[in-house]
Write a protein that binds this DNA or RNA. Structure first.
Lengths: 254, 254
DNA sequence: GAGTGGTCTAGACCACAAG
DNA sequence: TTGTGGTCTAGACCACTCT
């Protein structure tokens, strides 16, 4: 009656897919690394080349692999531009990304609260707290406050200033690959402290965005609270009719 | 050098896919209809069964077809529950959908403004304007103002009250299948009129959501401006790392 | 020129749904 | 029992990249 382990036998291509994900998560296959070709993989896993291909194409669609004719299959390497595009939703009037430049940054490390341990896992004794103001076109745009499990990011609190784009840094430095996130958006009034840092009047309307970010193994690894000014930009969302049986949750939800 | 028509020959499975989309858009294949089996389609299009299968699976992923073993392949039929889930983003504290109940509704028809014609197409002489207040758990939650090309929804202005879920109605009544939408979210202060209708104080923070909705053929068919209270609900977004070369725009953007 | 992935075909066996 | 889609295999040809 348990949900976790599939009781029914998974198709071969699913098992091959899972085995390859395990290698990427376990850093046996590292970002940028070139994989053996389809026939070699097929021999290795004991299936046909067509079956391996199906698994490879699924992983390409999930963004874990990059394939191109003539060059071969490589483990995807997240570039700063892509990473920003994937999770940063602020756009200007013409729909272009309102690229944020760092303005100020504070980073520290402290004991995790009970609430944080409940979300980030019982083994999370300390958290790294990163607070940033980022601007665009000369004006402050966003105030962000991130919390990460300190045992997953050892020494991060001494590496200020951090790169503008955080997720590629987490991947290169700590092997933390952020794959998906959920955001909860509400409208709030700026309090005095936030208003001062964002250069708006107290009581000005702001977007408050609460983000939970998950890594390759679908562990929650970042809690983020952001406040956005939306006087010159907006939070852009693309919605599509979801096919009923389609992949809703990437993996397990817990 | 033109972008529209593919100058290079498309793969067979893409051409088969496009041909099948055309049949669905042209109502040759109607929602719920059962398609011929893979071998019959293969014969009809002059390709192999494997190629047809690839096209069918792509259309299933796009949500246009539903396939199941033993039953066959049918044209997808949008149910109210799915349609609400797909585009309605408000969730309560536990992540459940904050199902909105209609509170009041006004519908009218008037000449289109120049701005509306620029967006909805030059042949859009008149627009249908639908204004609604919707509530949840006894309190007003959202004020919505929708504009649709009147020539695509003839007689709609006499059909008040309209069903709670608008898109299934548009599909059943006018053959307008909304497939995707973009939303621009900003934070604003409630003006006097909006505050009164939503039961909040003037100057309370609200989410303002501007939606553009597109049909099967990727025509812009709805402009919508909504104001949401987010004191007891939030606007929920799921973000995923997008594979660089993946399908970003469903069809052409114009 | 050698090797790669992209496309296309062909045929086999299975579980499942419907009559 | 019949027919369907789901899975798996096998082999062919092509365009492309790299050296």
């Amino acid at each position: 009656m348990e949900q976790d382990g599939p009781l029914v036998a998974q198709p071969l291509y699913r098992r091959a897919e899972a085995a390859m994900v395990a290698r990427i998560v376990g850093n046996v296959w590292t970002p940028g690394m070139r994989l053996p070709n389809e026939f070699a993989l097929a021999r290795e896993f004991g299936v046909s080349q067509g079956t391996i291909r199906k698994a490879l194409m699924a992983l390409e669609e999930r963004g874990l692999l990059a394939r191109s004719p003539g060059r071969g299959t490589t483990v995807a390497r997240t570039t700063p531009a892509e990473a920003l595009f994937a999770f940063f939703r602020l756009r200007d009037g013409e729909g272009r990304m309102a690229t944020p430049e760092p303005v100020e940054e504070h980073i520290s490390r402290r004991a995790a609260t009970d609430a944080e341990r409940a979300e980030l896992g019982a083994d999370c004794a300390e958290v790294c707290v990163l607070e940033r103001v980022r601007g665009h076109a000369g004006a402050p745009l966003a105030l962000e406050r991130m919390r990460l499990p300190a045992h997953l990011t050892p020494g991060m609190e001494r590496e200020t200033p951090l790169p503008n784009s955080l997720y590629p840094y987490l991947q290169d430095r700590f092997g933390l690959a952020i794959m998906r996130a959920t955001e909860a958006v509400t409208a709030v009034l700026a309090d005095a402290a936030t208003a001062r840092r964002l250069g708006v009047a107290e009581g000005a309307p702001l977007l408050r965005v609460e983000r939970r970010a998950f890594d390759l193994a679908d562990r929650l690894v970042e809690l983020r609270e952001s406040f956005y000014r939306t006087d010159s930009a907006h939070y852009a969302v693309d919605l599509a009719r979801t096919p009923p049986g389609a992949a809703t949750a990437p993996l397990q939800s817990r």
